[in-house]
Computed example of a mutant assay.
Amino acid sequence: MTIPFFDGHNDTLLKLIDDPRPDKIELFTNGMPEAHIDLPRARSAAMVGGFFAMFPPPLKASLSAVAASPTTSRGELPPQLDIAEAQRSTNAMAALLLRLEKAGSLAICRTEAELRNAVAADRLAAIFHHEGAEAIDTDFNALEVLYAAGFRSLGITWSRANAFGTGVPFRFPADPDIGPGLTDAGKELVRVCDRMGIMIDLSHLNAAGFRDVAAISTRPLVATHSNVHAICPSTRNLLDWQLAAIRESGGVVGLNFATGFLRPDGKMEPDMEIDLMVRHVEALVEALGEDGVALGSDFDGANMPAPIKDVTGVPKLLQALLDKGFGEGLVRKIALQNWLGVIGRTMG
């Protein structure tokens, strides 16, 4: 059975930018085996689209290198990133996304209607997403420009602090209630995003910042790539009260495939079974209901379970859910429909 799916988070643009080969369009369109996602494999796996993240490290510094830096690996926050540096790398990834659309490799979708149209036309649908607001100034001038280019989803922080809030450090075992809440600029950023129809992504944000967003935003609460803290007690995973708040708002959580956020021992090692992913999905469905669970792989930004490996492994997860007794209707919700619904309730 082929079940189409939409993915809540990937870092493929960063993977492409970091590759030394000059023709990024050809790499994505014709095949890039060392990446988790390229167009041929996305099509073969029935991936219909996803949130394409702009993660702003310095150019030519891979995400894995940043995450494994000495401060990060000790459970400390990486240093803040200068806005000029963040804008340089973000602009490069945004330009690449626009070029991929111009080449016909994907379609940037600004609304639920555009997303549904792209899926119907068999075009890979892309949501223009920022993982960390470092490229946005506190006067929100850059936000207006990015919005005009198609930007529709924002994770206020990655796992570091910026002008708007503080992310969680990578600690295990630990509670995500670490550090201060949103700054005044961060609280205003939430209000502005609500008015503009920009989705706020709570993944990577600390618990105090989560509380601030929940108190201010009138939109559904969304964590694009996070898991269940009760199963894997990583700072990156969600506590029971956070899951309850997301459910109450009509929001969604995308299952993160990163091994370190799935395994009860927190190890970032690939030797694990798909059954553990199913266990997280079961817990998410119990906490959020059938309309609150989706996929958020973190492809090209994390270590994947060996049975999944890359985008072509997603059908194995969907089949495992069917084999576990999840009805086909529920699996189709998790794979695609729940993302369509929350995008309609946040972006319009």
Rank of each mutant, 00 (worst) to 15 (best):
V192C: 08
I156G: 07
A163W: 11
N206Q: 03
G132H: 06
R171S: 00
V168T: 15
R191S: 14
D201I: 05
R219K: 15
R191L: 14
I127F: 14
F140T: 09
R171G: 00
A148F: 12
G165V: 08
M196V: 03
G155T: 02
A142C: 08
R171W: 01
R219D: 07
F172D: 01
A121I: 01
I178C: 04
R160Q: 07
I178W: 09
E144L: 10
F210Q: 14
L124E: 06
I156K: 03
G179H: 05
G155Q: 01
N162A: 14
S153A: 10
A142Y: 14
R191M: 06
G165K: 08
A149N: 06
V145G: 09
T166N: 01
A208T: 10
H130W: 08
G150A: 06
H130L: 11
A142M: 15
I127K: 10
F128K: 13
V213D: 09
P176I: 01
A161Y: 07
G167Y: 10
P173H: 04
R152M: 07
K187W: 00
A207F: 15
T218P: 00
G132A: 10
I216D: 06
L189I: 08
G150L: 03
A207M: 13
P169H: 13
F151E: 05
W158T: 00
V192W: 12
I216A: 06
N162G: 13
G150C: 03
Y147V: 08
G197V: 06
I156N: 04
I178F: 02
E131I: 07
S159V: 05
R171N: 00
P173W: 05
G167M: 02
A148G: 13
E144H: 11
G181W: 10
G167R: 10
R211L: 08
A133M: 02
G181R: 04
D194Y: 13
K187I: 02
A148C: 10
R171L: 02
I156E: 04
S159F: 03
D212H: 07
E144C: 02
G155I: 00
L205W: 07
P176N: 09
F164D: 12
A161I: 11
R219C: 11
G167D: 04
S217Q: 03
E134S: 14
A148D: 15
F172L: 00
F128G: 11
H129I: 04
A207C: 12
T157C: 15
F170S: 14
T138M: 12
T157L: 05
